[in-house]
Design a binder for these strands. Structure first.
Lengths: 216, 216, 216, 216
DNA sequence: AATGAATGAGTATTCATTCAT
DNA sequence: AATGAATGAATACTCATTCAT
């Protein structure tokens, strides 16, 4: 039963995207055939090719939608704003958003695992590079936020920014991946606590570094 | 020129395994064909089928060898030993091993990325479960070590073990993944420092939790 | 902006035909898709189907237009006219037309190559037969012209018509194909000369045949 | 029923080649699918891919075999040999070979029509260029032969080589194509005669050119 | 112990065609 | 008169697997 109106066409496209997301996440890009997607979306392979150039473009379309689903990025941007009154709290809010219900749901049920897989699998070098670049940009944003926080006196003025960024990244990445695989709620329930500890650690970073270095 | 006996056969098998490891790590399981492996190993597809049931079994053989390449596990076991004089230092040593040259090399160049990919991609459910189980076991081992350390008075007696395990795991997993993707040496060069900070955080965990909970 | 009536429709059809001619000639029938044609004509596939039954019918429409673009046929007809004063010069004029600028352009840039290709490729048997018939008709026309020329005393009365037709056809076909592939101007620049030589040869045909046959 | 011995494998390859030749000639390259060939050869598509890289390579293999089936090339080479006693007769022999039974059979029943089609159809630009080059080489060979014949005094010393080559080529190409499409035996039966006339024409070429040029 | 030949199912992609709007 | 959406069959090609030798 062919759909002919614009409305129906949009629905078809949406269904294809949804199915692709579901299947790519579940089985991975390679192991998902366009046949599978077509079957799942209730249309033919041909219909997919009407809406998308090819399989890769379908993936790219999916990834673009990821961009817009990023939670809490406004908080990170706020933390970089020199006019912000309390950038530290903004940064903490951003970290909190990483572990809230909605984000965890995103992590577990959607594109993320696909993205990780694509990134880890050697699949698409261009895609990989694109992601690498995005990571670097985010690191720079974090550095900027930290500098801003230091300038507001909320973190020690002798903070070694690179080190702090790295420590924060380890914490973020760890939280991210741990959230995906753990089956307890320990992390989720204690995330505010962990955040506090994280900033305590950052605050003591320089001092601790001096102490460590002075050891034999 | 007839290949003479066992010796040569073993060499063929070894070459197949090495090539498979290299290619699976680089391109992923799906995108690596037996033809590729055969070509890389200097034999024919048929030869692979002499040594392995099929492609999956070849993968499994590879994974078994992973087990034996785990670095530093003896330190974690030592940290659990009630007779150990200084279990905390053992635990620190285990953590250190995670970020030393050899382990980083392992992370970046071998099976690990393959495993992650296989784990993230839904390829093999049994494989996934097997890995989940191993993770739980390791968590329990860490819990045991922490309890042992507490009993030796090296960590506060009111330490909330679950919380500490989780915090440590976030740190470990974060370090692990961050090592794989970063292109700077910041993490590697400051790992001892990060470990010290980690234990400082753990030491303050309970106290901080009480303070956080008492907030409005 | 509504396309107003017949005028625009005709223009669309014309554009489709032009594009089809160009693309069929360039890439061949099989390798040209209706999508390509639609794109080239600035319309959609659907529009093509409004004007033509299907791809084959589009081709047939194109071929019909070939009929009318035949250059110089009036000269050949003139050469057959018993009332013609100088049929030989008419025949020469017809041959000349075969190699003039316009015809060469036609040969190289239009349907002809398509026709040859279709004819050589077994695509359409009916088409093939249609062309075969046309060739026979043309041969008969040439025979008629030669007889007329003989009757006017412009060629020897003992001319073996069949032989002369064949010789002329070899010359025509050779010129035709050679024009298409050569990249020099030698043929084009010397065509009048070649025509003179051709008739010289025809004039000596019978005599030469007798000589040849009398050899051991 | 899989074939396993070398002998059988060769037979399979041969059958594939034969079928491909037959089908390519009959229906053209594009319109012949590997499925058709496999069916005709009594094997699977996979078997074709065992013996040939892809469809194009299968075609190339076929074309290479054409090279070796070229009749009479030794005569053309002989005609170029400065030590040849009678190069003119060698050249005539080469022309004769073009129209003998065996060659005509080749023309009508084998690869030739495929080659023509491929050449006319825009199919493969590389293939086209390859053929163009071969044609140029052959022209040069003919020029060489004519010069040799002139040097032996068998053709006038003022012969304009380029012109003679072109005239000969028109004759050859015309004969070639006319042989393919005609349904009478006139050409075949009188070919020696036509050759004699051809050389008569060439002999008079320069003289005739001077006469033509001096016309108003 | 290993090769070389072959199978057959599966994959992405193309394209002529249809048809509601 | 023409569009845009969709179908479905066909196509070249890949690859895990089988098996006689």
């Amino acid at each position: 039963m062919p759909r002919r109106t614009l409305e129906n066409a949009m629905q078809t496209k949406k269904k294809i995207l949804e199915t692709a997301q579901r299947l790519f996440s579940r089985r991975g890009f390679e192991r998902t055939s366009l046949s599978d997607i077509a079957k799942g979306a209730g249309c033919t392979r041909g219909a997919i090719y009407w809406h998308f150039e090819n399989k890769e473009e379908l993936l790219m379309s999916l990834l673009e939608s990821l961009e817009q689903e990023q939670f809490g990025m406004e908080f990170l941007n706020d933390a970089c704003d020199p006019n912000s009154y309390n950038p530290l709290s903004k940064l903490k809010k951003w970290l909190s958003a990483l572990c809230d219900e909605k984000n965890i749901a995103l992590l577990n049920s959607t594109l993320i695992s696909m993205v990780i897989m694509i990134f880890n699998g050697g699949s698409n070098p261009e895609l990989k590079e694109m992601m690498q670049e995005r990571r670097i940009q985010k690191n720079e944003l974090i550095a900027k936020a930290l500098k801003n926080i230091v300038s507001k006196g909320q973190l020690p003025s002798d903070l070694i920014i690179d080190l702090a960024v790295e420590h924060l990244c380890v914490f973020i990445v760890g939280t991210f991946h741990r959230s995906r695989v753990t089956n307890t709620n320990v992390l989720k329930n204690n995330f505010p606590l962990f955040i506090e500890l994280e900033f305590k650690a950052i605050r003591e970073l320089t001092e601790e570094k001096l102490r460590t270095n002075s050891l034999p």
